[in-house]
Design a protein around this nucleic acid. Structure first.
Lengths: 137, 137
DNA sequence: ATAAGGGTTCCACCAACTGGAAGGTCAACC
DNA sequence: GGTTGACCTTCCAGTTGGTGGAACCCTTAT
């Protein structure tokens, strides 16, 4: 299979697949004309990566997950650990966004949105010492 | 005021403030020794930026908001538009994360997390054609 | 004199791609 | 056999919003 075929089948752009090769996530063969040649196993890996990335796993996570995926003597605890930690990050991000949303939707609601200059949104942004998210990192 | 002072007062790292100068968001003066000298108005801008960034506005949004902020003949509608569009982006992001969370927490729950290799998480990642978020962009 | 604690510039790096230029290859059609 | 068009290749640059570090200057106190 050429790169276009696995791109279609995995749902990843060809550019991304080349990038994944560059960073060592897949290692397709090369045919005599220089084209990449993908095996079934490469396609499986790419599909795996596509799905893992769409679940928000970082490339580093994907690398670790891929290793566990191909290693049939893995412990499911290792997989679960990576996924659980990712879940914690997702939760934190959701909370952060919800806090932003809350503040912002309040402000948007308050703003007349006409051609006068008075604007509660700008007033709030200009008001000092009010972190949107109550301080973490 | 030197950069350290406005850094403390605005809550932004000095590095970030230098970066904001580089991209033209603030334009402090320079004293004879080459140090940046910040006026009150610069501090106000930096505080504004700090808060706007913490609400998730992009730098481009911040640039536009800052212009409206200093322009006293603005129309609040212009501000509201930027904020509303940002709110839409936040909502979309929240939805995306919640979809991920849903899938992932389900999988984590299913996984035994012991030293055996069987793992529903890997099984799912390997299963083809299941976008985590039902397809948009 | 020197040490601490500011400040300065510049260059490189992070994630995870994406866009585009310049060019090679292949299969089909006339 | 020539040409078109769809593939493929590499390489370089840009994206977003900074961050880290090196090498060096300035000021003040001891």
């Amino acid at each position: 299979m050429n790169i276009g075929d696995v791109a279609r089948l995995s749902g990843l752009p060809a550019k991304t697949i080349r990038y994944y090769e560059e960073i060592g996530l897949v290692s397709p063969m090369r045919s005599t004309n220089g084209y990449r040649t993908f095996r079934e196993s490469d396609l499986h890996k790419l599909t795996f990566l596509s799905r893992a990335r769409s679940l928000g796993f970082t490339i580093d996570d994907c690398r670790a997950l891929l290793e566990l995926y191909v290693n049939t003597s893995r412990a499911s605890a290792d997989v679960k650990k990576i996924a659980s930690e990712h879940l914690v990050r997702i939760d934190a991000k959701i909370e952060e966004l919800i806090a932003m949303k809350k503040t912002l939707s309040h402000l948007v609601h308050e703003c007349a949105g006409d051609n006068r200059p008075d604007c509660p949104i700008l007033d709030d942004l200009a008001a000092p010492s009010k972190p949107a998210v109550p301080a973490s990192r």
